[in-house]
Structures are given as structure tokens and as C-alpha cells.
Amino acid sequence: MKSGSNLEKVLTAGHFAFTGELGPPRGAHAEEVRKKAVFLKGRVDSVNITDNQTAMVRMASWAASLILIQEGLEPNYQMVCRDRNRLAMQADILGACALGIRNMLCLSGDHCQFGDHPTAKGVFDIDSMQLISTVKKMRDEGKFLSGADLDGKPQIFIGAASNPFADPFEWRVHRLAKKISAGVDFVQTQCIYNMAKFREFIRQANDMGLTEKAYILAGVTPMKSLGMAKYMKGKVPGMDVPDEIISRLQGVARDKQAEEGIKIALEQIAEFKEMKGVHGVHLMAIEWEHRVPEIAERAGMLPRPKV
């Protein structure tokens, strides 16, 4: 075991993993985190805690992660390269581990221009690839990035994101390979809507042996409405929403669109369960945590394995 995290145990035992996501509040109320956590407890193996997502200031992801631990859930601590330099990152990794955090997701981070402080200076002292290598070096070699020894290796299950859809498509699998060679243990993909393209991506990853070197969790975000689908298609960089998703949502009454969105997600999850090279699903129910119990139940994900 690299970290002993629940997620690592579930995956190494060969179970189909199911992870969730929780965005920390824009304020100091721990209660906000606890309220959302109620819906996720017992329904997912680990919960991603986003780090100033979309470059909006929120409660620190390590702090929300700790609240989650208090509530008896396992966090997947997200860290972006945008907001801190290599000293702060390594310090946070040690602190997070000391307080019981065992999973980390290493990300670049959205550009500051998206957020509520658009003129802030993005740090990007190191990038996500280098952050992966840094955590690995700390964990496996017991060394800081500088090469100096550290006392007490951080036991972290190392995660990264993967976008299977961005152009040039033929390069996507090589990006994944690079992250694996940098040291990731598990990968959570961008929200998947284009299943044909994803099947091809996974086929390439299987052919290259990548799905035997890291666990791949397919990203699923149920569409809440036609408006959301159109927004994701047109406005969110890196998102690939095929017309058939739009037309399916258009084909039902307005008050049935959320149900249709969930149905699409359930069909996807059913296919991922059977797909060679996919080891789990990462459910990003954005500001829809209260629907997770129902989705988990209907997707046949319950009860979660005890390992």
C-alpha cells in the first residue's frame, strides 16, 4: 500500500470505485461542508475537495478535507498550481498527510481570469506534471524537490486529471502516459459526454498498457437541464458535448430534463462498469450533492465495499 487510503484499498482489491466531489463554501461555515457531506457519506469511496475551483476564493481545500475526515468520509485533496509555489505546496502536502489526508489530486488550476480576482498573479512555479513528480519523490524517496531528506514520508495516493477529448485528440493518450510516468496512481477524467471518443481513448490507453499502470476513473456529470448542457457545450473550455445529448434533453418536457440527465449518466455508468481499462467512476454532481444518494442507488453502486 502506498497510502492506505480507502480509495487505494477499494481499487487494489479490484472493486469498481465510485468517487464524489464537494466544493467548499465561500465563507467560514464548517456547517456548509457538513451539510453536503451527509449526502455523500457511505455512498462514495472518496470525495474530491476542490481547490478554489474556477479561480474563485473558497475555504481552503485542506481545511474542508479535514472537516470531511471529522464527519467520517475520506477526502481526495485537490491542489492546483495556480495559487502556491513549491515551498507552500510541499508544506501543505506534509501538513495534509500529518492530519490524515491520504489522497491528492494534482491539477494546473483554471486561469485567474475566470474567477473573482481576475488580475491576481497566477503562480505556476511548478506545473501539474511536476507536482505529481514532487509528491512521488516525497513519498517514495523521502526527499523534498530540492533533494534534501525529509523526516516522515507523506503517504499519499497520487491522482491527476485527464482530458480525453481536447485537440489534438491523438495526443491525449500520450498526455496520460506522461502523467503516469511522472508518478500518478489514479486518474480522474474530465466529464465525459462523447462516449465514442472516450471508447477510442480507452482503447488506445489499453493498447499502450497504461490502464495496467494507473487506475482510470471515468468522469460523469449529470446534466441538470438543457441550459446546462448548452452552456457546457458552448462555454466550458475542453468540454465535448455531442449534439445527441442536447437533442435528448430537448426531447423531453422541461420538468423532465433533470431526470433525463440522470438517465444519460446511469447509462454511461453502466457502460463504464463493463469497459476494459476503466476502474471506477468519478461523479461530479456540481451543486447537486443531494441527488448523489439516488444516483448511487440507481447506478447499482450501493453498498460501497468495506475494505
Binding site: 494546473s108 475566470f114 505556476f124 506534471m129 511536476q130 481536447a166 485537440d167 498526455r175 473550455p237 475542453g238
Partner: peptide
């Protein structure tokens, strides 16, 4: 690169354009 990445692109690469 708007993020000055050495191992890019990031997930925001968008049909040949930057996410910004």
C-alpha cells in the same frame, strides 16, 4: 502559455485556443 506550463497543455486547451 497563459499559465507558463512546461509540460502542457492544461485541460483548458480548447480547439487550438487558450481557455482564457
Amino acid at each position: 502559455c497563459a499559465k507558463g506550463l512546461y509540460n502542457g497543455p492544461c485541460g483548458g486547451t480548447n480547439k487550438g485556443s487558450c481557455e482564457i
